[in-house]
């Protein structure tokens, strides 16, 4: 129960199924606190599936099934006594496509606070909304139009609104599923800078297709690939410091992938 240990998340013999299909097989990795961990690999190797296992989002798909354990501060989040709602409150998620609620900018953030039991005054709520928007580097752009729809913002702003919404409820971990893939290079850069800021208070796991992005932003990198071409199950073939993965990987397949000779 030591919340200050070096590792915040740990997977043990994790197998993720869709029906009878083993999508992700036998993953054993440890995620370091206050670091950015990237998950890279070719399309269809189960990166998003693995990411969604960390906050039990997979179980929204009726056929999905999970074997093994994920320890979050040494507690198995798949234990039957654990409420997935509580897990998701403490492990937030930002999605590939910005998905603000069709509510006002203010409500996009206030709603998450309210469903998580916020019972304070209006001015306290205002302060929390402002803080979240400032932390997501969006405040200056939206402070005069908080009552406008979240959908009226540009794609990059919408994604920062989604990040603000996520950090407003103070999770410990933020999962990011290709958060910049739908954005232009400038908006992408802003998100990447933001991640470096957020790292001080949060642990971030990011799935990305973009290897330069993984190299730029992450401290650790998990390389995923299909185990073999018969069962088409993905697994983590190498997990190390990002600089090691990109400059001196142990696995030949990692080397081929990061140098662009494969995938």
């Amino acid at each position: 129960m030591n919340e200050n240990s070096e590792y915040i998340l740990e997977t043990r013999n994790l197998n993720l199924y869709y029906g009878n299909f083993l999508a992700v097989a036998d993953v054993n990795i440890k995620i370091r606190r206050h670091q950015i961990t990237a998950i890279i690999g070719p399309s269809g190797c189960g990166k998003s599936t693995l990411l969604r296992a960390f906050n039990r989002m997979n179980e929204l798909v009726p056929t999905a099934r999970t074997e093994g354990e994920i320890l979050f501060n040494n507690e198995n989040i798949y234990d039957p006594s654990i409420d997935p709602v509580e897990v998701r409150r403490r492990i937030g998620m930002v999605f590939q496509k910005p998905n603000p609620f069709p509510k006002s900018i203010y409500e996009n953030i206030a709603w998450g606070l309210r469903i998580n039991g916020f019972r304070g005054s209006k001015s306290e709520l205002d302060d929390l909304v402002e803080k979240a928007l400032r932390d997501a580097a969006l405040w200056d752009e939206v402070k005069d139009k908080l009552d406008q729809s979240g959908l009226s913002l540009s794609g990059g702003q919408q994604q920062r609104l989604c990040i603000a919404r996520t950090i407003a409820v103070r999770p410990e971990v933020i999962l990011m599923d290709e958060p910049a893939s739908a954005l232009d290079p400038i908006a992408t850069l802003r998100i990447e800078e933001l991640m470096q800021e957020l790292k001080k208070n949060y642990t971030i796991i990011i799935v990305t297709h973009n290897m330069q992005q993984a190299a730029r932003v992450s401290d650790y990198t998990a390389m995923m690939m299909l185990r073999n071409h018969e069962d088409r199950s993905g697994t983590v073939i190498e997990f190390d410091r990002t600089e090691v993965i990109f400059t001196n990987p142990r696995d030949k397949r990692t080397q081929d992938y990061v140098t662009g000779r494969f995938g």
Binding site: N55, M57, L60, V85, E86, R88, R89, R90, G92, M93, F95, K97, N99, P100, F101, P102, K103, W111, G112, I115, N116, C162, R165, T166, V169
Partner: peptide, 27 residues
């Protein structure tokens, strides 16, 4: 109502009832 909206709500720690009545129905 797109799935992404439901997922956004679940990812914030919303219960099924909160997602249905406060996100899906208004949308």
């Amino acid at each position: 109502v797109p799935r992404s909206l439901r997922e956004a709500a679940y990812a914030l720690g919303a219960t099924k009832a909160e997602v249905a009545t406060q996100v899906v129905v208004p949308a």
